[in-house]
Design a protein around this nucleic acid. Sequence first.
DNA 1: GCATTACCCTGAAAGC
DNA 2: TGCTTTCAGGGTAATG
Length: 273
Amino acid sequence: MPEMPEVETIVRSLRRSIVGRQIVAVDLSGLPLRRPVPPAFAQQLASRLIRAIHRRGKYIILELEPKAFCVVHLGMSGRLFHLPGTAPRPEHTHAVLRLEDASQLQYRDHRRFGLLELYEVPRIGLIPEVAALGPDPLGRKFNGRNLSRGLRECRQEIKAFLLDQHKVAGLGNIYVCEALFHAAIRPTRRCFKVCDEEARRLAGSIRRVLRRAIRHRGTSFSDFMGPDGKPGDHQRFLRVFQREGEKCRRCRGTIERLVQGGRSSFYCPRCQS
DNA sequence: GCATTACCCTGAAAGC
DNA sequence: TGCTTTCAGGGTAATG
């Protein structure tokens, strides 16, 4: 389940390995992902140069020359692998970008919740998926004051707010649970009931949790690994996520689980109010 | 207009 | 042992 730290790990790895390479051919499985991959996708990508790789929220964006942007979202189970050109193409491989140095970039996604799209626009900001995103938690616009302003006028539960990519870009279930634990806020709290001081604390917690996860190359349970095949290491440092019934490392109380909007939330009822 | 729910999908785990 | 059912979750369209 790639969230921002996992996507950032992938982007950093791919920057080292595929930027400056030309795409010579593209093979597609033909199966639809979240949306059907446009029939012209392969033809539009072929012969373009990979100029740079960007991340916006959980989106990976290949900046191409002649100017275009290839947008990749990994959904729940998507993975990118940079492999030798002779590597086999396993089941659930939906796109293969063959590069000029005889290597290949494989997109695999067994649940097909991901997205592959090409936009011929002059700027990243004109990509519709990117334009709709809220501020990046590691960017300048994300701070306690702005977060507090957003929370004040919202009646949703804080968990749903933080998962909404239009409000904050890049957070998923794992890091929302972890950040709320560090900020001592229960996931069911209504946004407008989070005071300024708590919002400031939450903004700081979100940034710290994400930075720490990036240092550990993300969290791996079953789905995530980097393009080089290495899993992340952050799962060892989680305080609440998937720890239902275990002891809280802060107060020795018991971690509980509840379901919000069909997603599991993990929290410590003693530490979080 | 905002909040909530259903749906897409498949592998793994649980239940029978 | 083998089959069936349930669950997980990101994003979005549909519904309330």
